[in-house]
Design a protein around this nucleic acid. Sequence first.
DNA 1: TGCACGCATGTCGAGTTTGACATATTCTGC
DNA 2: GCAGAATATGTCAAACTCGACATGCGTGCA
Lengths: 110, 110
Amino acid sequence: MREDKKKRLEARGWRVGTVTEFLGLSPEEEEYIELKLRLADGFRRRRAQRQLTQADVARLIRSSQSRVAKMEAGDPSVSIDLLVRSLFAMGTSRAELARIITNKRVDKAA
Amino acid sequence: MREDKKKRLEARGWRVGTVTEFLGLSPEEEEYIELKLRLADGFRRRRAQRQLTQADVARLIRSSQSRVAKMEAGDPSVSIDLLVRSLFAMGTSRAELARIITNKRVDKAA
DNA sequence: TGCACGCATGTCGAGTTTGACATATTCTGC
DNA sequence: GCAGAATATGTCAAACTCGACATGCGTGCA
């Protein structure tokens, strides 16, 4: 239940592989963060695919641009609930969701 | 963001297929509820498999028996976050999580 | 019958997540 | 370089979720 600075740091500067080999995170915490980052990534992709701005999706999911930015950043203040609901709101199916969870994330810089 | 009576009713008496063809739910609400019920089901299964009581898992995940019961019931007061974290705490992998999301639920009474 | 055990349901104060707003930073074409 | 658009970051009151507790319900069993 502890959500704090640490995660804020990790989420920043995420590279390809697993997050935080360096900070002492329990396996389940690590899984949770990894999952969140994958959902964040999946969300951003879907938005790009549709050529929408953050403000556009914000309208679509009845949220705000700033929250969308936080979602995509995997911010600690964003729940998986919100990410999942937003993906659904953008027309993602459960099967696609499963793929997002399973498939590897892609690094920002190729 | 509206979570209320309706869902409480639907979650109760869940049959095999999709939830609520009868109540007017938007596709994304339906997907969200269906997802929650699948996670709830997956969680219950995993617990049964390990032959643990609700009180046991509650201890394991540092929660309470009542919350575990609500989790398994897909109660509106339970977030997907909590379900996912609990599954991870019970040793579920992301791949298994994806399967739980994809595979069909199983009815209580065969 | 009485009782212990496992599960379900309602409630509540404390803690977390939310949309919104203000503002800063980065990006893009000119 | 500059303006405008897109995105990022900090903050906050309102809304929601949390663990905990009390209590109800069914089942087995002595």
